[in-house]
Amino acid sequence: MDPEAFLDLANQVTKLKMYPYFEAAHCAIVCMYIKEDLAAGSHLFSRKHPLACWLSCMLSIFAGTILCNFLLGEPVLSVFKSSNQLLLATGVWYLIFYSPFDLTYKLCKFLPVKLVLAALKEVYRCKKVHDGVLHAAKLYPNGYLIMIIAGTVKGNGGAFLKLLERLIRGLWTPSAIEFMQPSFPTKACIAAATLFILDKKTDLISAPHALVYFGIAVFFIYFKLSAVLLGIYDPFVPFENLFCAIFMGGVWDALGRAVSAGKGDHTPAKVDVAKNGKTESGKKKD
């Protein structure tokens, strides 16, 4: 591709409007996840507890902005100031849970449609991470950690509020805390936020901002589609294992186990020799 045409494409991606198509895809994926999390009880729950079902979906859909506003000391409920976004989210929620014969949910689960929705959602995620980093940079120009946190929670806020979202549905699952086992989207958002900071605050990245943004969006889309099609859920795992083995005591723990195993191997042998010695001496005495 011609470099100028490629740069023009990247500029167009940065200027994409998220409403309504990208936001609708985000809402659909989130509502599908909650419906699948309810499993076989989704039909009964949505009929008996429509308010709790709606609240849990709205909390997950707007989780990134809610959590980011809370951490940055801004009004939490300002996320609902746009009636159009709220109506769009409510409409998608209604279609996913209450369409006749579950047609909307089955259509969204159809693989080609699911791939399109997933790709649109990842573009939306990239936009949210970027907006979170820029917003935090305006408030705290030198707070790099704050920028990373804001970009991460805005890009994957639903994972951090999963505990509260399930609690609204009457489930208490303390093991669902994202800090205990960070998912790949959280790690990807941390990496994307770091790249946006390096691009904005340093000269380490010489490429145009549009190319950096476009590259991160492609990164999100590629690994999301890989997860759907190939089952590749976390490409960071090999690097994490190597890092933990080198810097988090993995090597020393392995050496300690090897030494302990070596001592354990010698001890029974000595005992056996002693026992055999006693046996032999006993036989001689006899």
Rank of each mutant, 00 (worst) to 15 (best):
C108T: 11
T194C: 12
S206F: 11
D131V: 06
I146T: 15
F97Y: 13
Y140F: 15
G151Y: 06
T186S: 10
F110Q: 07
C126Q: 07
A176E: 12
E165P: 00
F179G: 03
A210S: 15
P112I: 02
A210D: 08
F97I: 06
F196H: 08
L111T: 07
L107I: 15
A217E: 08
K114F: 14
K138H: 12
D102N: 15
A137F: 06
A89M: 05
I168G: 01
L111R: 14
F110T: 09
Q85M: 10
G151A: 09
A192E: 06
L198T: 02
P208C: 04
F80P: 00
G215W: 03
A118E: 13
P100I: 05
L145Y: 14
T152P: 02
D102H: 12
N142T: 14
S183P: 07
L86M: 14
S99R: 09
T104R: 02
I149R: 02
M147G: 03
R166S: 10
Y144P: 00
L139R: 14
S83T: 14
L195K: 02
S99C: 11
G157V: 02
Q181C: 13
C126M: 06
G155F: 00
R125S: 10
S83Y: 13
A193Y: 09
K127N: 14
D203Y: 09
D102K: 10
C108P: 08
W172N: 11
V92Y: 07
I148M: 07
S206V: 15
V123L: 12
I197G: 01
K138G: 02
V212Y: 04
P174R: 00
L117P: 04
S206A: 13
G157F: 04
A150F: 07
F214N: 08
T152R: 01
L161A: 08
K127D: 12
L161H: 01
H130E: 09
A159V: 14
T173H: 12
V218H: 00
Y105A: 07
I148H: 00
L164Q: 09
T186D: 05
L111C: 05
K121A: 04
A210Y: 04
V212T: 12
V218F: 09
M180F: 14
S83H: 12
T186Q: 06
F160K: 03
K154V: 05
Y144A: 05
W93H: 08
V153H: 02
